[in-house]
Amino acid sequence: MALWLAVTTQAETYERLLDPLAERGIEVTPLQPSERTFDLSDPALPEVDVGFVYPSRLMEGGVVDAALSIPWVNGREAILRSRNKAAVLARLSQAGVPVPETTMVSNPLDDEAVAAAAERFDPPVVVKPNSTTRGTGVAKVSDLDSLLGVTDYLDLVQDYRATGDRSYLLQEYLPDARDYRVMVLDGEYVGAVERRLPTDARERGQWKHNVHRGAEAKGVDLDPELRELAERAADVLEIDYLGVDLLVTEDRAVVNETNARPTIDSATKYEDGFWDDLTALLRDTAAE
């Protein structure tokens, strides 16, 4: 029996889902939840059985959810849980999962308090908005004046009354750490990539290993202990389809962030059976 799946994620994920899922009896249809208009009495959305994944814009997601009344692989609560970087790190730390040393700052806060919070870190310190993605707004600073300059900009942005999140993180910088995006599906490791900046980018002073910022993602055969670490993170957060970002140095491995709306990479970066496992999760979710 064919199952109809609504996909709200970016173009590359949608394209990569089409053929493998069609071969397994799941018809994929795109669902655009943003940058459009909705007739609220008749939103004209496709008839589907299950969604993948809940829209990133929660206001539009509420309209879509009301119109479709379908279960989601990674529903609204999963998206909210993963988006809050500070809460993710707090949950993981409380469960004994290693994370970077991090302080959350809730604005407004005066310069003296920010400076005092930064003193616990050896410079440089990473300044990170709490709920952005793709490395947006993340900065690395080596002195107090630079830190306060960055936080001044955050104060300006977060002072707007409609801004829902008025927090940011101060986080230890782990030089020379290897950066992995690990995919966990229904509690099991299904593949990983190492994200690395090209040599010329590093020579220009770039340091963020986000693909959006020019890093290259190469499929890797991850060590068992790192696989287990990513699976532990997904278990603590109770998210079925999760990208887990690991930073690995010579003597530590930590969970840096998670993403409940990760891009599906090319098939060569996944373990055998990935598409069968995803199909099973989609059918189980649709049956809920």
Rank of each mutant, 00 (worst) to 15 (best):
R195L: 05
D240P: 14
T258H: 07
R283L: 03
D284T: 14
A162S: 09
D155F: 04
E23R: 10
V114C: 13
D251R: 15
R36D: 07
P71R: 02
K140V: 06
L80N: 07
I26P: 10
S146M: 05
I79F: 05
L58D: 05
D272L: 14
K140D: 03
G149A: 15
V244M: 10
T285H: 12
A233V: 02
S167T: 14
V190Q: 03
V97G: 07
A118F: 09
A177K: 11
L237T: 04
G137H: 01
D235G: 10
A267L: 04
T37C: 05
I26R: 02
L148Y: 10
Y189S: 07
P43V: 09
L21C: 14
E228C: 01
D65T: 09
E23F: 12
L242Y: 06
I70S: 00
A234D: 01
Y14V: 13
A113T: 14
S69A: 13
D65N: 12
L281F: 12
D284Y: 11
T29W: 12
Y14A: 12
E60T: 13
L169C: 13
L68I: 11
Y180F: 15
F121D: 01
L222P: 04
V88K: 03
T136N: 12
L5C: 09
V236M: 01
D165M: 02
K218F: 13
P33F: 05
A139K: 10
R213G: 06
P108S: 06
T9C: 04
E101H: 13
R232I: 00
P198T: 11
T8G: 02
T9V: 14
Q171L: 08
G273L: 13
W207E: 12
V236D: 06
E271F: 08
W4H: 13
A280V: 09
P123R: 13
A44G: 06
S34P: 00
A215D: 00
D272M: 03
P123Q: 08
G96D: 07
V150Q: 15
L5H: 03
R261S: 15
V184G: 05
R181D: 03
E231C: 06
G62V: 01
N84M: 06
T37F: 13
R16E: 05
R83H: 07
A234I: 02
V63Y: 11
R204N: 08
V114T: 10
A90R: 15
S69T: 12
E15H: 11
E101T: 09
L197V: 05
W275N: 05
S167N: 09
A11T: 14
L185T: 09
G137Y: 00
R196C: 05
D235W: 00
V28T: 14
D240Y: 04
L281G: 12
T151A: 08
Y168W: 12
E257I: 05
